[in-house]
Nucleic acid binder design. Sequence first.
DNA 1: TTGTACTGTAATAAAAAACATTACAATTAA
DNA 2: TTAATTGTAATGTTTTTTATTACAGTACAA
Lengths: 134, 134
Amino acid sequence: MNGRFPIEMHIMTLLCTADDYLSSDYMAGSINVNPVLVRKELSNLIKHQLITSREGKNGGYTLSKPATSISLASIYQSIKQGNVLGQAKNQPNPACPIGKQINNHLKDLDNEIEQAMLNKLGTTNLAEFCNKFD
Amino acid sequence: MNGRFPIEMHIMTLLCTADDYLSSDYMAGSINVNPVLVRKELSNLIKHQLITSREGKNGGYTLSKPATSISLASIYQSIKQGNVLGQAKNQPNPACPIGKQINNHLKDLDNEIEQAMLNKLGTTNLAEFCNKFD
DNA sequence: TTGTACTGTAATAAAAAACATTACAATTAA
DNA sequence: TTAATTGTAATGTTTTTTATTACAGTACAA
């Protein structure tokens, strides 16, 4: 796993608690990662319509809708890639009866588990998450 | 995520369907990864008491208990490391009120989600998983 | 109309993680 | 006593992740 979800959650929390547009450099300073990496996540969040941006001087980013209608599942969905339970690089041996079928069965299992995660993430929205902060 | 869970599931499935000890080289051939990597996972499974080994000629590996009493959650537990939802390398800025607290809140969230995954994985045992194979 | 503060993105480099390979000691059956 | 095997350390290669540099485009404001 990489740090994309924590970074996106950090971005969304900052935007949720801010009362004006925030710049990528400001957010990078709070998260403490490279500003370009933050801007890549911001691009991704825009693509998924969770935030909007304003270019030029005094530009920045803001939530595209009320925090109460942004579920943590939708944030997770925006970064999800591959299998939650991991995936091996190599194809199992197709000459082996187990090897031939296991990827399908593991994929089914992965889908089930991912659904359970999403269900749980879907029970909390961004506003509720931000309320945990003093 | 890495390929450890798929590899361990593959190992456990092979051992579940075999009626004698299997060697690490045979299993590596079915999984199609380096034998040393397989032996590392086998070591780990032994450490977690899910399998046992026999050294020397005609040695190999076998399940340490009936497949019906090995839950997929216990296999997952043996490889789990860090956060399911990922973790950033850098510490957030402690001078920022959000940065100061976010790791704790993300950790709580991660624990909740991991528990949901484990609950779901706990509903299936190895024998049931292996029954899916023709 | 020009400077400044931003977004947006491409290209490249560095660091870290994952995986492969080689090597060999220890064990045990035949 | 030979051959097949586990167990593990050390090292190398490849892939992924993160950081850095660079710069074009946009918009505000003096």
